[in-house]
């Protein structure tokens, strides 16, 4: 499943997309994220999945544009820590 966490508002689209079929719940992204945006836990959207999965914490879902801002400077873009840490390539960002 492609889980889109985040939102679209008047200013643009801000989604972190987690491919739950690729995610193996290793938690590397959680460790890599300096701002506590990600967590690993029960898949709330698939009640029959037994393995844990990565997701965006409830706290950050409505403000990821701001939460992730320090990782996305206007100039001198670097690879995102969460994306880089994920070996199965399960994380992508829409902006």
């Amino acid at each position: 499943m492609l889980a889109h966490y985040g939102y679209k508002d008047g200013s643009g689209d801000y989604f972190i997309v987690i491919d739950t079929d690729k995610c193996d719940g290793c938690g590397e992204c959680v460790t890599a994220c300096p701002y506590g945006v990600l967590e690993v836990g029960e898949d709330e959207n698939d009640p029959f999945r037994e393995e844990p999965v990565a997701k965006v914490t409830e706290d950050h879902r409505k403000k990821i544009k701001y939460s992730c801002a320090p990782c996305k400077p206007t100039s001198g873009k670097k690879p995102l820590p969460c994306v880089q840490a994920c070996s199965p390539d399960a994380i992508s960002h829409s902006w």
Partner: peptide, 15 residues
């Protein structure tokens, strides 16, 4: 009826 892709927008009142 199993979810394959989803998004939920509950931040912005538009829509």
């Amino acid at each position: 009826g199993k979810v394959t892709n989803f998004l939920m927008n509950d931040k912005c009142a538009a829509g």
